[in-house]
Amino acid sequence: MTRAALLVLADGRFPAGGHAHSGGAEAAVKAGRITGAASLEDFCRGRLYTTGLVSASLAAAAALGADPVALDEAADARTPSPALRVAARRLGRQLMRAARAAWPHPELDALARRFPKGAHQPVVLGLAARAAGLGAADAAYCSAYESVSGPATATVRLLSLDPFDATAGLARLADDIDRVASEAAEAAARAVTDGVDALPAASAPLLEVGAEAHAAWAVRLFAS
């Protein structure tokens, strides 16, 4: 395996559609829950330990070779909001295109055939990591980091936040990202032997509620 592939996959400029999504930050800004750098960091920490942990576990399990169809069902079960399911599948489809171009692999082709409108993004991410020769921990790191980097860059645009403050906040989350990625990789290993029910099911009700409200707005900057 090559560790440099992880940099390619985790690069914020990897062309997989993420730039149009705020990870719930736009709804949280409108609701007054994110007002500046400090509350952005709190928001990101909350998202990391809930959605981020679940996503990282799914990605790690897919990287280990767990059945992606079962993982996709597990992702649905852990995503109550229909709007978030739609966003996750759309992002999965977009990531699939980039991943197949970057690391052609029969397992990616098979998943694309099985889900022409997109599988859940973390499942595709994990399989992309697998196709790139990366391991479960790499996939978990990539997914966990994405769960906070997306809202951070979106909030820079939404609040005209100082980008250095947002980046410093991400850097302060590094220990938390380590913890979540490691927990996710362990859960993924258990899921390979015990089935997908071994994956965490942490939830963030405000993200789910906010996503449903956001999807109904007539005017918004981000798709989710």
Binding site: R13, P15, G17, H19, R90, F222
Partner: peptide
């Protein structure tokens, strides 16, 4: 309609995935 996350040029140039979809 494709949504562009406040960056219309990104969606037509740097990351065209939503438009291709």
């Amino acid at each position: 309609a494709v949504e562009t996350g406040a960056c219309p040029h990104t969606a037509i140039r740097d990351d065209i995935s939503a438009n291709l979809e």
